[in-house]
């Protein structure tokens, strides 16, 4: 089996590319999950019943199916519907949809910290539903869920490992392990290097999240 040094000198650039693939997927998926999660949450609290039902249904679906199953559906089933997505896009979509449902759940919980009185005050000032969402509900829900969103970002990064299940070039941090082990004898060490990158990134994200939380936390 190869040592860490041998692995890095032979596959260092591959690891770097893999790291970028993972980071790129993580950033895109998390941003997408935030936007989608916010949109779904607005549907769930809006006065229009069918939109509420749709939002609740959406969350139940994507919160409760395995990511791998969703990816399989996207890769194998979509072509039957004449929708052709690249492998990369399939991973992107799967790893956006699942975290978006969790994002919405966190926001719904975060909203419970906002007193009904503040909403009534906003209504009495003449604000419309969207103005209340924009001025009162979302800012407070987001600011009170920074730690949950931080965890979600880490979870999203770990979920991008689904990319290893489809042929990607360059591969992601998990996929690269398979690549190395088919081209050399990296064994468990090849995986440990990837794990190290995941872990370090997660710790850094956690630290940044803690700082942001301290800064934006709402005094009550």
């Amino acid at each position: 089996m190869m040592s860490v040094g041998e692995l890095l000198s032979q596959f260092g650039d591959k690891y770097l590319q893999a790291l970028w693939t993972t980071y790129g997927l993580t950033v895109l998926c998390f941003a997408g999950a935030l936007v989608l999660g916010i949109a779904i949450t607005v549907m769930r609290i809006c006065p229009i019943k069918p939109l509420q039902w749709f939002g609740d249904f959406y969350v139940q679906i994507f919160r409760n199916i395995p990511g791998a199953a969703l990816l399989i559906v996207l890769v194998y089933a979509l072509p039957y519907l004449r929708v052709m997505l690249s492998y990369y896009m399939c991973v992107l979509v799967a790893v956006t949809l699942i975290p978006s449902s969790f994002c919405s759940e966190y926001l719904m919980a975060g909203m419970n910290t906002i007193g009904a009185g503040q909403i009534e005050a906003a209504r009495s000032l003449g604000m419309t539903f969207f103005q209340i969402v924009k001025n009162v509900v979302l800012p407070q829900a987001l600011r009170s869920t920074v730690l949950q969103m931080t965890n979600l970002l880490v979870a999203t990064m770990l979920t991008t490992a689904l990319a290893s299940q489809v042929p990607l070039n360059p591969a992601d941090l998990t996929g690269i392990v398979t690549y190395i082990n088919t081209h050399a004898v990296g064994g468990i060490t090849a995986f440990m290097i990837s794990a190290f990158f995941y872990a370090v990134t997660a710790v850094v994200i956690g630290q940044i999240g803690n700082r942001i939380d301290k800064k934006v936390r709402i005094l009550r």
Partner: peptide, 25 residues
């Protein structure tokens, strides 16, 4: 009952609550 016109008329009537209800953030 609802809609833009209701919001507009509401904006013409102020309201002060027992629990203040200032925007916490």
């Amino acid at each position: 009952k609802e809609g833009k016109k209701l919001a507009e008329l509401r904006s013409q009537i102020g309201m002060v609550f027992q629990s203040f209800n200032l925007f916490a953030h």
